[in-house]
Design a protein around this nucleic acid. Structure first.
Lengths: 159, 159
DNA sequence: TATTGTTATACTCTATAACTATA
DNA sequence: TATAGTTATAGAGTATAACAATA
């Protein structure tokens, strides 16, 4: 407690200023990236939310709507509309679970597989990251992984 | 075409995979951060967009609505509603520019100054960044700055 | 009684187009 | 005619509450 560095409140002091800059840059960069990916999704005829939903579905391990809602961190009621659009586009098929007839399993169709791959690719293009070397990208990935809750439920790190 | 490394399309190959992971992590982290800050804004009685608008206004250099729209990268028509709420809350005052009576200058009130400071602090708290050292934060800031369009119009880097 | 999926509803955010008042 | 701000409107995204079917 002798020198500087102990701020009464978070968001104050040098450390808080630095953290604030990082927060704003992350939000800004993410905004630009989403703007970028959204264009790609639109080219596939998908809204951003629908694209994210499709991306979250695993063609080889169908899940119920409930589970998709958890993965998307949104309410069940929203999933209904998202899956409606996916089913209308022929990318996903609702299938009642014989074991528990309350559940509706979301099966990705063959067409859905193809579009899902394209969604994945759109999210990997990352024009904005072109200026970074492979080393820098690696470092960035590590640092982002250290951010609390940066563990990412499914697809961020592992693959 | 002799070795690896040359991918026909972006989003393919090792580099694309790495970039994709970084993209997804950034989006995920930004999502978590926004969720975090949004709670803070709500405690101030502000919606996220209103908070961002107030944060963008400089109490010492009033700007017109048009300019705010540019800074927020949104349409003029939206600014009307945002400023409506800010004015209703007594945080901002519309003032017709005598020089060009088409313009309405947005003046931050005394109460507005206080709330704006709190907004700034909410954005600097960054609980999620607690696990990173000062060095790591600095590196993260640099790398994010290298991302295309990471220049950030106003408040990200400079202060 | 608890849970799944659905529906109805509402609010926020954002965009487009048409209007007004100034210039 | 061009521009600033406003209004009306629409669509996407997300949340809550109530409902039917199933467990």
């Amino acid at each position: 407690m002798t020198t500087t560095g102990a701020s009464p409140r978070p968001g104050t002091g040098e450390r808080g200023e630095l953290a604030g800059q990082v927060v704003r840059r992350i939000v800004h960069v993410a905004r630009a990236m989403r703007h970028d990916t959204d264009l790609g999704f639109a080219r596939l005829g998908l809204t951003p939310a629908v694209a994210r939903a499709l991306h979250q579905l695993d063609p080889d391990r169908p899940i119920a709507a409930r589970e998709l809602a958890e993965q998307l961190e949104c309410d069940r009621s929203n999933v209904t509309a998202l899956v409606d659009k996916l089913e209308l586009a022929g990318l996903v098929h609702r299938q009642v679970d014989p074991a528990d007839r309350r559940l509706k399993t979301l099966v990705v169709t063959d067409a859905g597989r193809g579009v899902r791959d394209q969604v994945h690719q759109v999210m990997s293009e990352a024009r904005l990251l072109a200026g970074l070397s492979d080393d820098e990208l690696g470092t960035l990935r590590e640092l982002l992984g250290k951010v609390s809750d940066g563990g990412c439920p499914e697809d961020c790190g592992g693959e």
